[in-house]
Simulated scan of single mutants.
Amino acid sequence: MAPRAYWKGSLKLSLVSCPVVLYPASTSAEKTRFHMINRETGNRLKQQMVDAETGDVVEGDQKGRGYELSKGKYVEVEKEELEAVQIESNHTIDIDSFVPRDEIDKRYLDNPYYIAPDGKAAVDAFAVIRDAMKDEERVALARIVLTNREHVMTIEPLGKGLLGTTLRYPYELRDEEDYFDGIKTPKITKDMIELAGHILHTKAAHFDPSKFRDEYEDALKALVRRKASGKPIKVTEREEKPDNVINLMDALKASLKGKSAAKRRAHAPAQRRTPTRRTPRKAHRSAARHRKAG
């Protein structure tokens, strides 16, 4: 069964346009989730909206939207007033410009979407736009209305289709200086940097998401399976964290030696077993020499 489109409209590049559909490129459906239940009955719990001051349950027709002007003081905004400022969707992805891919700050990247042609009649125009973009080292910047809000979206070729990624607005990003200004600039020796560089080289690899493993998700699934089958759950105590006071140079050197040390430890059991295997042979040779001498 084909997935249901999240959005339908047109992709427009100047006077060229074609019908397209959007599908969310990510999903959290496979993640393990829990519901709140009544421990006595096993029934699922239902949440209710409660007045923060009176404690009374608020019914649906009493609910409204309010913007907090100051602590505990709200201005109520009616549904009709909100609808008046909402952007009317024209169901068109308007490409405004093309920018170099490496100029896009990754912090602005938000949600990814797959963009595909909507119907056979759209394939030709879609392919023209897609293939033209393949020849450029640039990414399209477009505007799209999703859930009554306008978003800026990057668009770039991905296989036979296009990848669209909504972008955050500048006001949604926090200023890095608020977090980095307090970081001091210590004196680091050249030897330390070179050792760290060697460690980086030993861990060089290629980006392969298939190797990503969500160990926490695996543990949750195993926990649920054991509980459902009636098996006991053993709760292990957390290990105490070691002190953070370390000698940086010693830690760098130990990191470099870690791989070779691990190999030595892997072979150590075989070496310890060697004398045990040789002992009978020595005893046999000694007895043979004794008989020959006799």
Rank of each mutant, 00 (worst) to 15 (best):
G9I: 09
S14A: 15
S17L: 15
C18F: 01
L22Q: 05
T27N: 05
M36A: 06
I37P: 00
I37S: 01
E40M: 05
T41E: 01
G42N: 09
L45W: 04
M49K: 15
A52M: 10
T54R: 05
T54I: 05
T54F: 05
G55H: 01
V58G: 07
V58E: 09
G60P: 08
D61C: 02
R65E: 00
S70L: 00
K73V: 03
Y74I: 10
E83V: 08
A84W: 15
V85K: 12
D94K: 03
D105N: 02
D110W: 04
D118Y: 05
V123P: 04
D124Y: 15
A125F: 06
F126G: 04
V128R: 02
A132K: 14
M133S: 01
T147P: 08
M153V: 15
I155S: 00
L158W: 05
G161Y: 04
L162P: 03
T166L: 10
L167P: 00
Y169W: 13
E172F: 03
L173D: 10
L173C: 07
E176H: 13
Y179E: 11
K203Q: 15
K211M: 04
R213N: 14
R213I: 12
A219Q: 10
R225I: 14
K227Y: 00
L256E: 02
A262W: 12
K263G: 12
R264N: 13
R265A: 03
R265I: 14
A266F: 12
A268H: 09
A268I: 05
P269H: 07
R273S: 06
R285A: 06
A288C: 10
R291L: 04
A293R: 15
G294F: 07
